[in-house]
Design a protein around this nucleic acid. Structure first.
Length: 425
RNA sequence: GGAGGGGUGGCAGAGUGGUCGAAUGCACCGGCUUGCUAAGCCGGCGUACUCUUCACAGGGUACCGCGGGUUCGAAUCCCGCCCCCUCCGCCA
C-alpha cells in the first residue's frame, strides 16, 4: 500500500496515477476525511494519556488525602479516554479498509489506456512455425494421443480440471525442472512453499481484501490456497528487518497454484488454457529501496523467462501492460505471450511486475542499509514457467502432420525420447 | 490429541506491579589509539505514528507473540488465541 502521509500530501497525484489512469474507483475523499479525523482524535487521546501517566507516576510518592485525590483523578481521566478509544478504533478500521484498496502508483512509462488493446508491444521474438496442414488445437492433440482426460476429470473434480497422463505429465515435469534449473544457475534459491497460507500473507502481497473471490478459502481455519507462490515466497521475510548487505534476495518458488477463475465463466472453456489448478516456477526478488535498481531487476527476471522460451524455441512477444490491465499492487507489468498456433494467437504465459514498496509496506518487510536506518524493501516477481499453459504452446508449436508431437530439443535428454508417446484408448 | 516448558530490541539474554523502551553481551555506526591485522578505549545505536522547528534537534503516544481484562499505574497479574520446544499417544 501507499504511505498514508504521501496520500495525504499528494492527493491529486494519487487520484491520477493510482485511480484515474487505471480506471479504478476508491473513495479517496472519504479516506482523507477519515485520516484527518483519526489524526485529531488520536492527538486528543494521546494528550489525555500523557496526563494520565503523569498522574499515575505521582501516586507512590504521595500519601493521605493527596494520594486519594491523585488516584481519583487517574480514574477520572481513564473514564474520559475510554469513549475516545472506542470511537478511534472504529475510525481506524474504516480508514485501513479504504487504505488497503488504494492501488499502487503507476510508473510514468506505463502505456496509457484501460483495455487489453492498449497494451504496448515491446518486442516479438522467434519465428512462428508454418504448417502445410491445418494445425490442431492442443486439446485435440492431447486427447487424440490419450495424454489428457478432461471428461473424467470434470466428473471427479468439476470444470476446468484435468488429468495429465503419460508423457504429457513427464513433459510437464521436464519443463518445470528445466526452468527451475535455469534460475538456480542464475543464483535463485529454490523453495517449495506452503500452499495454504494465512490472511496476512494474502493481504501483504495484495491478493486480499480485493481478490478474495479469486482465491480458494479453506473452511474452519485462517487458510487460503495460494494462487501463486509469489504469496508465500514474497512473505518469507514479512515483519523482519533484513541486513541490507544481503540484498537482493533472489528466490524461486515451485508450487501448484489454485485459482477460482470467478467471472471467467464462458471464457477459454476449452482445453488446458484456463484451469483451476496449475504448476508454476516463480521468481521473486527482494531488493533495496531504489527505483533504478528495481528497474534493472525487472529486466533481469524478464530476461530469465525469455531465455526459457528461447531455449524451448517457442515464439513469443513481450507486452507492456497499460494502466487498466495492471494488477492493483504493481507499478509496472510486462506480460509475455507465447504463440499458440491452435488458437491462432498469442496467449499470456508470464507476468513480470515491479512493486517498489507497495508489498513491502503491507508485509512490514524492511532492511537496515546506509546510515543504519530501517527502510522498506522493494519487491518484484515473474513467472519462469507455468504449466499446463506452456504445454499448450509446446503441443501446438511442435505438432506434426500425423498428429504426433515432437519434444523440444532441450527436453529430449530428460524425456529420453523425441516424440510424445501415445496411450492407446 | 494429552502433559509440561517457552515466546522480550538485528541476535543472545536479564527483568514477576511504579523512575522499564526495557540491564548486560554480541552485532552495527562514529571517533581515538594503531606500521597492518586483531585487541583496546570513548560515544552512539529499536520501530511506528504524531506535534514543534528553516534545520540541528526536541516533545507526545504506542509497541516486550496476538487480542481482551484487572489497576491510579502492566513486559510483569487474569482470560482467550497463535506459534515454538520436550515427552507421550496416533498416523502418511
Amino acid at each position: 500500500m501507499l504511505d498514508l502521509r504521501f496520500i495525504r500530501e499528494n492527493a491529486d497525484e494519487v487520484r491520477r496515477r493510482s485511480l484515474t489512469d487505471r480506471g479504478v474507483a476508491v473513495d479517496l475523499d472519504r479516506l482523507l476525511e477519515l485520516d484527518r479525523e483519526v489524526l485529531e482524535l488520536r492527538q486528543a487521546r494521546d494528550e489525555a494519556r500523557a496526563e494520565q501517566k503523569r498522574t499515575a507516576k505521582t501516586v507512590p510518592s504521595l500519601s493521605g488525602d493527596a494520594k486519594q485525590e491523585a488516584i481519583r483523578r487517574g480514574k477520572e481521566i481513564g473514564q474520559s479516554i475510554k469513549p475516545m478509544g472506542e470511537r478511534l478504533s472504529g475510525l481506524e478500521a474504516e480508514l485501513r479498509e479504504l487504505h488497503l484498496q488504494v492501488p499502487n502508483l503507476l510508473d510514468p512509462d506505463v502505456p496509457a489506456g484501460l483495455t487489453e488493446a492498449d497494451n504496448a508491444l515491446v518486442r516479438a521474438v522467434g519465428d512462428k512455425p508454418t504448417f502445410d496442414f491445418k494445425p490442431k488445437e492442443h486439446i485435440d492433440l492431447a486427447n487424440d494421443l490419450g495424454l489428457v482426460d478432461m471428461k473424467r476429470a470434470a466428473r471427479v473434480a468439476g470444470s476446468r480440471t484435468y488429468f495429465l497422463r503419460g508423457d504429457l505429465l513427464m513433459l510437464e515435469m521436464a519443463v518445470l525442472r528445466y526452468a527451475l534449473d535455469l534460475v538456480i544457475a542464475r543464483g535463485y534459491i529454490p523453495h517449495a512453499p506452503p500452499l495454504i497460507v494465512n490472511h496476512d500473507a494474502m493481504e501483504g502481497t495484495g491478493y486480499l481484501p480485493i481478490g478474495a473471490d479469486q482465491a480458494y478459502q479453506c473452511t474452519r481455519e485462517d487458510g487460503w490456497l495460494i494462487g501463486t507462490s509469489e504469496v508465500p515466497i514474497t512473505s518469507i521475510h514479512a515483519g523482519e528487518i533484513l541486513d541490507g548487505k544481503k540484498l537482493p534476495l533472489r528466490y524461486a518458488g515451485y508450487s501448484p497454484c489454485f485459482r477460482r477463475e470467478a467471472g471467467a465463466a464462458g471464457k477459454d472453456t476449452r482445453g488446458l488454457y484456463r484451469v483451476h489448478q496449475f504448476m508454476k516456477v516463480e521468481q521473486v526478488i527482494i531488493g533495496p529501496n531504489d527505483p533504478a535498481i528495481s528497474r534493472e531487476f525487472h529486466e533481469e527476471i524478464l530476461t530469465n523467462a525469455e531465455d526459457v522460451l528461447k531455449a524451448l524455441q517457442l515464439p513469443y512477444r513481450v507486452m507492456a501492460l497499460c494502466g487498466g490491465d495492471i494488477g492493483r499492487s504493481a507499478a509496472f507489468t510486462y506480460d509475455i505471450e507465447t504463440w499458440m498456433p491452435g488458437r491462432g494467437s498469442y496467449g499470456e504465459t508470464h507476468s513480470a511486475s515491479r512493486y517498489y514498496e507497495y508489498q513491502a509496506r503491507r508485509l512490514g518487510m524492511r532492511y537496515r542499509g546506509e546510515g543504519n536506518k530501517a527502510t522498506l524493501c522493494h519487491t518484484l516477481n515473474n513467472t519462469v514457467i507455468a504449466s499446463p499453459r506452456v504445454l499448450v504452446a509446446i503441443l501446438e508449436n511442435y505438432q506434426l502432420a500425423d498428429g504426433s508431437v515432437r519434444v523440444p530439443e532441450v527436453l529430449v535428454p530428460a524425456m529420453g525420447k523425441d516424440r510424445l508417446e501415445p496411450i492407446a484408448p
